[in-house]
């Protein structure tokens, strides 16, 4: 049975880097892997959804409603938006970070601060990871994505892959130490 993972966030949060590292790790582990992302207008502060499917043989690169084993959300509201993707018994890993969308900034809409409580009411497996906060404490909020990668790898129980080596090869050279620390924090949460 194929596993389906969805990463959601806001343009600029590093969801695509995370899924690239994850895909490479899954290939190293011997799986067939497909990854799908939409770029273009989503780079300009819109919602970004990246999808990864892996298993013995993967056909469709797209994950539909009710098919995701795990949703990793880089932003609280986006976890709520992505909920329909989750399969019965699936897991949500979400940051508590709030990034106001334009309708909230202009006062047309109100930010749903209660999103995580609402998710917990209906989904049995909600794991809250304060990744942005941890990354900030480590020195740069941009390492949030690698904290979440650590938490995700733990959930997937994929320990036969050298994740640290993959991270070192796929992040800017001067941020390697920061990102390795971020991975360890996420993994050990």
């Amino acid at each position: 049975m194929n596993k389906c993972i969805i990463l959601v966030g806001v343009g600029g949060q590093g969801t695509i880097t995370t899924s690239t590292i994850l895909s490479k790790g899954l290939i190293e582990a011997g799986f067939d892997v497909k990854m799908s992302e939409i770029h273009g207008m989503s780079q300009r502060g819109g919602t970004v959804v990246t999808q990864i499917k892996y298993g013995e043989k993967v056909y469709s690169p797209i994950i539909g409603d009710g098919e995701a084993d795990i949703i990793v959300s880089f932003e609280k509201l986006e976890a709520l938006r992505a909920l329909p993707f989750l399969k019965e018994g699936g897991t949500i890993v979400t940051d508590v970070r709030e990034i106001n969308p334009m309708p909230v900034l202009t006062g047309e809409a109100v930010y749903p601060h209660e999103a995580i409580d609402q998710l917990k009411e209906v989904v049995p497996n909600v794991i809250v990871v304060e990744a942005a906060k941890v990354a900030e404490e480590l020195g740069n909020v941009k390492a949030q994505n690698i904290v979440l990668l650590g938490a995700l790898v733990k959930q997937l129980a994929l320990d036969n892959v050298d994740w640290r080596d993959l991270i070192a090869k796929n992040v800017p050279a001067k941020t390697v130490d920061l990102n390795l620390a971020a991975f360890d924090k996420g993994y050990n949460m």
Binding site: G11, S42, G45, G46, L80, P101, A109, V110, Y111
Partner: peptide, 8 residues
Amino acid sequence: ANIPARPP
């Protein structure tokens, strides 16, 4: 659920 849109 209150899910504000997030347009680019």
